[in-house]
């Protein structure tokens, strides 16, 4: 998907600038924070960005109900007190929440399954924004669709707010196995993959009692989006990885979890509830940063693991009422 770039005129919000922003996060840890004070703790621990929100996923899960974008005042307060980039979450398909976040000066918008989805058919048309987006994925098809829609960064969904890393591992392994698969089946096989990946863009047709001949999506015509999906998949099979920076998220709560995901080829780590639901957030934050930066050095990961107190309490995936990973498609 290499596009010609015109440098004659000064430009903002290009794909190069959006993906470039994500590249600067490489190797780092992005932490969920709910107050300015927590943002300071995260910054002082070496976070590369903070994710500003009202409640961490574990609390969203516990309280139930509809989870929406955070209050603008909270996001503003965190933006004003932090020197590192600030990200914030919009509901899946909620273009209006995303526009508000962009207006507030959020550096990257997370179209997140941790919040209650707003659109049952389509995700946000991310190419219409100047601010870059990060989106979650559970498999290669989801990743390709989000990138084709304009996401500048991906993360595994994992299962947020559980302190259980198993879903993050599942998603990372699925994505990498499906990438390898795409490399072995030739261009005809990949055309088949594209067809399967395209099905999810036709959800609206499936729900109607009529045979809708609808051809338009928020991202252009079905043909245009199919061409984009195909070109993203071709590039992935050529380079052997996603063409955007890919972090792990959802259930990472210890330094060992972080190192595990880095060893699986992830470019960095999101930690949601894992830090501020632990017994000693400052040390947990520093330890997870240390383990992420030095994941290849077992002695340092061991040292980091000894720095923390009680990790957050964990939940078995099978016992959950709400599986956030199933939101979005």
């Amino acid at each position: 998907m290499v596009k010609r770039v015109d440098f004659e005129q000064m430009r903002h919000g290009t794909e190069l600038l959006k993906r470039g922003f994500a590249k600067m996060q490489e190797g780092g840890v992005i932490m969920d924070v709910v107050t300015a004070e927590e943002a300071h703790i995260a910054e002082d621990a070496g976070a590369v960005s903070v994710m500003a929100l009202e409640r961490v996923p574990a609390d969203i899960r516990a309280s139930g109900g509809v989870a929406r974008m955070s209050h603008p005042d909270l996001i503003k307060e965190i933006i004003e007190t932090t020197s590192i980039p600030v990200m914030a979450k919009a509901r899946i398909g909620h273009d209006e929440e995303a526009r508000i976040l962009q207006e507030l000066g959020v550096d990257m918008i997370d179209e997140s399954e941790v919040l209650t989805p707003a659109d049952p058919f389509f995700h946000i048309a991310k190419n219409n924004f100047t601010a870059p987006f990060v989106c979650g994925c559970t498999n290669l098809g989801e990743a390709v669709r989000r990138i084709a829609e304009g996401a500048a960064m991906m993360r595994t969904k994992g299962e947020a707010g559980t302190g259980n890393v198993v879903s993050a591992v599942q998603h990372a392994r699925l994505v990498s196995s499906e990438i390898k698969h795409s490399q072995t089946i030739g261009s005809e096989g990949r055309e088949e993959m594209v067809k399967i990946m395209m099905e999810e863009f036709r959800r609206i047709n499936r729900l109607s009692s009529f045979d809708l001949s609808l051809n338009n999506t928020p991202f252009g015509t079905i043909e245009e989006i199919e061409a984009e999906v195909s070109s993203v998949l071709e590039e992935i099979s050529k380079i052997g990885r996603l063409p955007v920076v890919t972090f792990s998220a959802g259930g990472i709560s210890t330094p060992a979890d972080a190192a595990l995901m880095m060893h699986q080829g992830m470019d960095g780590i999101f930690v949601g509830s894992g830090i501020f639901k632990s017994s000693d957030p400052t040390n947990t934050a520093e330890a997870i940063v240390l383990a992420t930066h030095h994941f290849e050095d077992a002695s340092i990961v061991t040292e980091a693991s000894a720095m923390i107190g009680e990790p957050m309490p964990g939940l078995e995936i099978e016992t959950l009422d709400v599986r956030m990973e199933e939101r979005g498609w």
Binding site: H12, L17, Q102
Partner: peptide
Amino acid sequence: YGRQVDSFQAQ
């Protein structure tokens, strides 16, 4: 120069 929305490319 500002926040990420102010990031730019130029000759």
